[in-house]
Structure formats: C-alpha cells, structure tokens
Simulated scan of single mutants.
Amino acid sequence: MKRTPRANGTAATDDEATLDATFEALADADCRAILSAAGTPKTTSELAEDCDIALSTAYRKVELLSDTPLLAEGVRFDPDGDHAAEYVRDAADAAIEVGDDGVSVTVEGEDADPLAAAFDAPGVSAD
C-alpha cells in the first residue's frame, strides 16, 4: 500500500494488517532509523546511506513502512526523465489506544507540508 503524504491531518486505523505492520516497523531499529532520516523526502538509496544500512535492507524496510501510516511515497521528478520514488516521514505523533472495541493507532501528520518540502529540495523546480 503506497500512500502519498497526507495534508497535516490525523489518520486512525484499527485494521489488523496495518496495526501489525505498524508495530513491526516500530519494533525494528532500522525502520526507526529510516523514520528519523525521512524528515525530508529521500530516495531509498539516500535513506540507506544516511542510516548506514545495506540498500537491500533499506528496500525491505521502506516496503514495510509503506504499509503503515508512518511513511508516505512521492515522486522525485528529474528533468532527464529519470524519476525516482522518494519517501517522507508522515507522522509527528502517534498514539496507541486499547479499549473495549480493540486496539487502534492514531497518527498525527507533520506540522510542515511534506509536498511543499519536496519542492524546496535541491534541483527540483515547479517551472
């Protein structure tokens, strides 16, 4: 499930597959490092380098994080046509609630607009 960044909103889920993926990702040190590094949009290669992990590991962890409300996918446009997927942390705060109806995760978006941040990236122009 690839998601585009949400606009400063709140997402809540009680879907078991999403909950399982979210808990698995949060329990994984590499996933937490990727979330930390993904404050600005980055490709998987950039995330692997920033986190000092193997590229194959980074691809697996990004795939796992993409199944959660914590990371969103965008596109880095290249004037030469070599567009690349890029990822950005899509959570500023998360809360786990356990109640009579079960378990849910509520994720609040970042204060800054991740799409606007993408246009502030070097080499990216809206022209």
Results as ranks from 00 to 15, higher is better:
Phe119Arg: 08
Ala27Met: 12
Val75Met: 10
Glu49Ile: 11
Tyr87Arg: 06
Ile96Asn: 00
Thr22Gly: 06
Val107Lys: 04
Ala25Gln: 02
Ala21Cys: 12
Asp14Trp: 11
Asp52Gly: 04
Thr13Gln: 05
Asp111Phe: 08
Ser45Asp: 10
Ala72Thr: 05
Thr22Gln: 10
Ala11Ser: 14
Gly74Glu: 00
Pro122Met: 04
Pro5Leu: 01
Asp30His: 11
Arg6Ile: 03
Glu46Asn: 06
Asp80Leu: 10
Asp113Gln: 05
Glu86His: 12
Ala21Ser: 15
Met1Lys: 09
Ile34Pro: 03
Asn8Lys: 12
Glu73His: 00
Ala116Leu: 15
Ser36Tyr: 14
Ser66Asn: 13
Ser56Tyr: 01
Ala37Cys: 11
Phe119Pro: 00
Ala84Leu: 07
Ser104Gln: 11
Leu19Gly: 10
Gly39Pro: 02
Glu97Ala: 08
Ala29Gln: 12
Ser66Met: 12
Ala54Lys: 14
Ile53Cys: 05
Arg76Ser: 03
Ala95Pro: 00
Gly81Tyr: 06
Ala54Thr: 11
Arg89Asn: 01
Ala25Glu: 02
Asp67Cys: 03
His83Gln: 08
Ala33Cys: 06
Thr44Met: 04
Ala118Asn: 03
Asp52Lys: 07
Pro69Arg: 02
Ala85Lys: 14
Gly102His: 00
Val103Ala: 04
Leu26Ile: 11
Arg32Ile: 11
Cys51Lys: 00
Ile34Trp: 04
Leu71Ala: 02
Ala11Asp: 13
Gly123Leu: 04
Ala118Glu: 04
Leu65Glu: 01
Glu63Arg: 14
Thr68Arg: 07
Ala29Val: 12
Leu35Met: 06
Asp50Cys: 03
Ala11Leu: 14
Asp67Ala: 08
Glu63Thr: 14
Ile34Ala: 09
Ala112Leu: 15
Ala48Cys: 04
Thr18His: 03
Leu26Lys: 08
Thr13Trp: 08
Glu97Asn: 07
Ile53Phe: 03
Thr4Arg: 14
Ala27Trp: 05
Lys61Met: 11
Leu47Glu: 01
Ser36Trp: 13
Tyr87His: 13
Asp80Lys: 14
Ser36Cys: 11
Thr4Tyr: 12
Asp78Arg: 10
Val75Gly: 00
Tyr59Trp: 13
Ala48Thr: 02
Glu110Gln: 15
Leu35Val: 03
Leu26Ser: 10
Gly39Ala: 09
Asp111Arg: 14
Val124Leu: 13
